[in-house]
Amino acid sequence: MNSLFRKEYEIPANDFSVAGEASSSVRKLLNQLGVDPPIVKRTSIAMYEAEINAVIHGNGGKALVQFFEDKVTILISDEGPGIEDIELAMQEGYSTAPDRIREMGFGAGMGLSNIKKNADEFVLESEPGKGTRVHITMYLL
């Protein structure tokens, strides 16, 4: 099925002045479309975590968001260093964020588990040296 419309966003590396802008824009669109507030909330959480990961770990990246009648698919991709051990990265509390990131309130090792808990579907593809792709699907109905 073709998407109704799609949005693309650039996610700049290490630039916290715009970190979260892509997620905020998607949240606004979902609200305008009249999507149920709890679904908007879960989408915001999942997408924000993926976006912040791209900012912090991925040297920035891109977000591609496709809106369908019954779902939204979000792909956050980066060409950063990739994840060596995905299973370990998925463990709540595990983080490789440096101190300067932790001092801002990130790096608690909750990002990926927040995505898992809040997304309806979540696929993480990553390989060292080949970047990371986070696929999130949210069902709207």
Partner: peptide
């Protein structure tokens, strides 16, 4: 003060108290 927890825990209309003053609290 953990932004990932606040993302989940702050409910619509909540007054959110945090000691962080960096720019990321605005997005949250």
């Amino acid at each position: 003060d953990l932004l990932s927890m606040a993302m989940v825990g702050v409910k619509d209309g909540n007054l959110w108290i945090t000691v962080h003053t960096n720019i990321n609290i605005i997005a949250v």
